[in-house]
Design a binder for these strands. Sequence first.
DNA 1: GATGAATGAGACTTCATTCAT
DNA 2: AATGAATGAAGTCTCATTCAT
Lengths: 218, 218, 218, 218
Amino acid sequence: MNKETPTAKEKAIYQAVVELFMEGADLSGLTVSEITAKAGIGKGTAYDYFSDKEDMIARAIWYNIDQYCLWIHQGISEQETLYDKIDFLLGKMEKEVNKANCLMRLANTMSTDSAIGKRIRQQEQINGNEAGPVRLLESIFEAEHFSPSLSEEMLYFLARNAISRIFCYGMMLSKGSTREQGQSAVQSSEMQAMHRLVCLGICADADAIRQWLSSEES
Amino acid sequence: MNKETPTAKEKAIYQAVVELFMEGADLSGLTVSEITAKAGIGKGTAYDYFSDKEDMIARAIWYNIDQYCLWIHQGISEQETLYDKIDFLLGKMEKEVNKANCLMRLANTMSTDSAIGKRIRQQEQINGNEAGPVRLLESIFEAEHFSPSLSEEMLYFLARNAISRIFCYGMMLSKGSTREQGQSAVQSSEMQAMHRLVCLGICADADAIRQWLSSEES
Amino acid sequence: MNKETPTAKEKAIYQAVVELFMEGADLSGLTVSEITAKAGIGKGTAYDYFSDKEDMIARAIWYNIDQYCLWIHQGISEQETLYDKIDFLLGKMEKEVNKANCLMRLANTMSTDSAIGKRIRQQEQINGNEAGPVRLLESIFEAEHFSPSLSEEMLYFLARNAISRIFCYGMMLSKGSTREQGQSAVQSSEMQAMHRLVCLGICADADAIRQWLSSEES
Amino acid sequence: MNKETPTAKEKAIYQAVVELFMEGADLSGLTVSEITAKAGIGKGTAYDYFSDKEDMIARAIWYNIDQYCLWIHQGISEQETLYDKIDFLLGKMEKEVNKANCLMRLANTMSTDSAIGKRIRQQEQINGNEAGPVRLLESIFEAEHFSPSLSEEMLYFLARNAISRIFCYGMMLSKGSTREQGQSAVQSSEMQAMHRLVCLGICADADAIRQWLSSEES
DNA sequence: GATGAATGAGACTTCATTCAT
DNA sequence: AATGAATGAAGTCTCATTCAT
C-alpha cells in the first residue's frame, strides 16, 4: 500500500486504458497509439513513464482494481454477518452492472496465457498481493474466525469458490440487462431468487467447511 | 447436429489447433503458419476450407468441444443421481487434470472480447447451441424433473452456477498439481473435502431452487 | 568455399546493398526500406531470406568481397615476383578508382564498433576466413617462402602493413581523381613515383623481415 | 589557432564525448541524452551552445585531437632525427595502447560516410587544417628539408603513408594486448622487430622520395 | 486441388529537437 | 540562463492473406 501517487501522465494512461476497456476493447488487442491518443499525450511520452505496452496496461489495471477494491472494502466492513457482506457485494453489482461486467471480463483476461495476461499476474506479485478481488474475499472469510483456523489452501478455495458464484450471478445480471434494455432485470422474482441463492449458498459453503474442520479435529 | 463430416484437411486443422492449445499456446497468439505447419498442409490450402484465421480456430474449438462433451455425456447418462453425476464429472477432472485445465483456459478465452473470443461465441450460435459445457449441465438439470418446470433463465443460471463451481474446483486441482509435483494432490483430505463440498453444494443449489419454485407456485 | 549459390532474391538484396554503397551511402545508415526498394522486392520478403537488417548487409558485403577477391586472385597468380604482384594490384586500382575507393570505405566500416561493423566481422569468421583482402595479401606473402617460416603473427603484420600502404595509395588516387576530374591523375609523374614507392616499399619490408628472421635464427 | 576558449558548458560536453568514446562507445551511436547526462548538464542547455548532435561530437573530437597533438608535438620537437621522431611516436603508443587504440578507432570513424564522419571532416576544414595527426606528420616531414621542396601532394602522401604504417603497428599492439593479458606484448622480439621495421621503413620512404626528387630535377 | 513465396499494412519503440517553466 | 518533459517522425520487424505455378 506504500505506492507513490501516480503523476498526471500516468493517471492519463491509467484512465485511457480503463475507458477503452469499458468501451469493450480487448486488452490484448489494445495498441499504444489507441491508448496515447485516448490519453491525449504523445506516443513517446508514454515511454517515459512505462517500460513497454504491457507495463502500461498491467499497471493501469491494478491501479483501478486497487481503487475499486478499496472502495468496496469500506462498504463491506460496515456489514456484520457473512450473508450481509455477500448481499452487499451483489447489491453493488446490481447498481453497476456495467462495472461488474468489466470486472468479470478482466478476471478472464488475467487468467489468460496471453502476454498481457501474464504481465498482469506478475504485476499482482509486485503489488504485494495486498489487493484484488481474491484478497478481498479472503479477508471476508478470515473475519469469520474459523476454528481451528483455515489452511491457506482452504481459504483460497473458499474465496475462489465465492468469487465464481458471485461472477456467475454477475453474468446473469449482464445477460439480463442486455436483453431487456430499459427495464430493470434486477427486480424480476427470478433474479431475486438467484440473488438469495448465491448469498445463502456461500454461507452454506462456509458452514460446510466449518463442520469439516471440526470433524477433522476429532 | 446437421453438420457435415469434416474433410481430411479440415480434420488436420482441427487437430493442429487443439494440439497447439494443449501445448499451452494462447489462442489469440496462434499464427496461420504455426497451425498449417502442425497440420502438415500448405498455408494456401487452409484458405480453401476456412474463410480466415478466426474461422480455423473457432471451428476447430467447437469440433473438439462437441467430441469431448459427447464422450462425457455417455458417462454421465450411466449415473443415477445428481450427486453421482457431478461426482463423476469431478472424477474425470481428477484423472485428466491437464485436459480439464485446457477446458478452463478455453472457457476464459471464449469469454474474452478478443477477435478470436468473439468468433468462438458466434460459432456457438451457428452450431445451434446444441453442444458445449453449458448445454451439458443444462441437460443434467433438465433430467431432474423440476416441478413446475424451470424457466429457461433459471435453467441457464443453474448450469452456469454449477460450471463455475466445477471450474473453481478444477482451478484448485491444477494449482495443486503444479505445486506438489510427483505426489497426487487429489488424495489430500483437503482436496477430498472440497470435492464433496462441490457435489453437495450443487445439489443444495438445486434443492434451493426446488423450494423456491414451490413457494412461487402457491 | 562450399557456399550454396544464392537464390534470386538473395542476389537481388546483395546487388541492392552494393549499389547503394557504391552510390556513397553509409552502411550503418542503410534502411531496410531503401534496400528492398532498390532490390525491387517487398519488405517482408527480405525477412524470409535474412534474419535481420545486419544479416542482409553483412552477407551482401561478403558475397561481393569474395567475388572480387576471387577475380583479383586469378590475376595475381599469373605474376611472378612480389613486386609484380603488388604492381598488378595497384594497376587494378588505377583502372577502377571508384571500386578501390569503395573497398577502402568498406575496410573502414568493418573496423568500426557500430552494429553493422561487428556483424560484418562476425560474418568473416562464419565464412571461414578464407577470403577478404587480408587473406589475399597473406597468401601473397606465404608464396614468398620465408625461411625459417613466418609466425602467424608476423604474416598478419606483413599483410596488414601492405594493405595499409596500398590503401594509402588508393586514398591518393581517389583524392586526385576527385580534384582533377576529367584528367587522369594517374599519369602525373608524382603518382607514378608513389606507385613505385609503394611497390618497392612493400618488397623492402619483406626483405627486412627476411633479414630479421635469419638474424633471429643464429 | 584563433579559437575562442570554450565555455565551461562546452568543455563539459567535450569531456563527456571523449569519456564515452574511450569507454568504447561508437560515435555514430551516441545519443544526446547520454552525452548531456555524462556532462551533467541539461539536454536543452547543450542546444544553446551547439547547433545539433553532430556539432557536439565533431567539435568535441577536434578539441581533444588538438590538445593531444599539441602535447605530442612538444615531445617530438625534442627529437633530432626522423628515426627518433617516429621511434618516439611508437613509444608513446606502446605506453598508452588504449589511447592509441582510440585514436585509430577515431581515424576510422572519420573516414566513414556516416553523418558524423562527414561532419568531423567538415570541422577539420573549419579548424583550418592546422591540427590533427596528418598535419602532425606533415610538419615532421617538412622539417626534413627536402630539396627541391616537396609538392603539397607529395607531402600529404608521405604523411598519410607514415600514418598508415604507424596505425598498422598500433593495430598489432592492441591485438597483442588483448590476447596476452597481463604480459606485455611490447617486449616480445617480434613486436620489437615490427617497431624497428616501421621506423626504418618510414625513413626509407623518405629517402626514396629524396632520390626521386633529385632524379626529377635533373 | 495444393502450395508457399511474396506482399505490405501496421505494430512497437527510439531519440533528436523544442519550448514552457 | 537552464532545464527536461513532451513530441512524433522514422525505423525494424511480423504475419494474415493472395496468387502464380
